[in-house]
């Protein structure tokens, strides 16, 4: 995704640099029969910038005969025809958004492979972040409460570490480097605990 973002940035940059208006003008002016398309928002586009933007926009359009693939990904003839149409419209100076709206007026919202971020659709865009935030808040609360717990433990360290050593003896992975220094008196206690748990 990030690469696509960069691609879009490059495309826009190239678009600013090469906005020579006369290039495709005579072609595009004559071709558009469909009044829904209106007047191009941007300047005509060509070369690598056009290819990059075509890729970008077609990856947002759902291939109508495939299962959940974008027009950019699908090898079917319909998808290729749609990608050609995207390229043609972009070359004529229509903006990416205009192209998407045009496809939407023909096919319905279904044709957009990612839902438009407006109205009820905002749910699908916002809910994951809300979920993550609530989750993070719960984790933060837990960590805070355990900080109090740990402080509490520190004041009564002997019995707590004993019970900890029992837990550790059941560990699946034994990791001497991560364990605190073993002091001899504790080691004796550990030994006793192990004897007790022995079947």
């Amino acid at each position: 995704m990030a690469t696509r973002g960069v691609g879009l940035g490059l495309a826009l940059l190239a678009l600013l640099l090469t906005s020579a208006p006369a290039l495709v003008a005579q072609d595009s002016a004559a071709v558009e029969l469909d009044p829904r398309l209106g007047v191009p928002d941007d300047a005509p586009l060509s070369g690598p910038a056009l290819e990059a933007l075509t890729q970008e926009i077609s990856s947002l359009i759902r291939c109508p005969v495939c299962q959940g693939l974008s027009v950019a990904d699908s090898p079917t003839t319909s998808a290729v025809a749609m990608q050609d149409e995207v390229r043609r419209l972009l070359a004529a100076g229509y903006s990416g958004d205009q192209v998407l709206v045009y496809f939407e007026t023909s096919y319905g919202e279904f044709i957009r492979l990612e839902p438009k971020a407006q109205g009820f659709n905002l749910v699908v865009w916002i809910a994951p972040f809300a979920f993550l935030l609530i989750g993070a808040a719960l984790v933060a609360m837990r960590v805070r409460s355990s900080r109090a717990q740990l402080a509490d433990n520190a004041s009564r360290s002997a019995p707590r570490s004993a019970s900890q050593s029992q837990e550790e003896s059941q560990d699946v992975d034994h990791d001497p480097h991560n364990e605190p220094e073993r002091d001899p008196s504790l080691e004796a206690y550990r030994q006793r605990v192990r004897e007790e748990v022995k079947p």
Partner: peptide
Amino acid sequence: VKVSVGEPY
């Protein structure tokens, strides 16, 4: 209304 949620999302 039918919407798509696909790869880009």
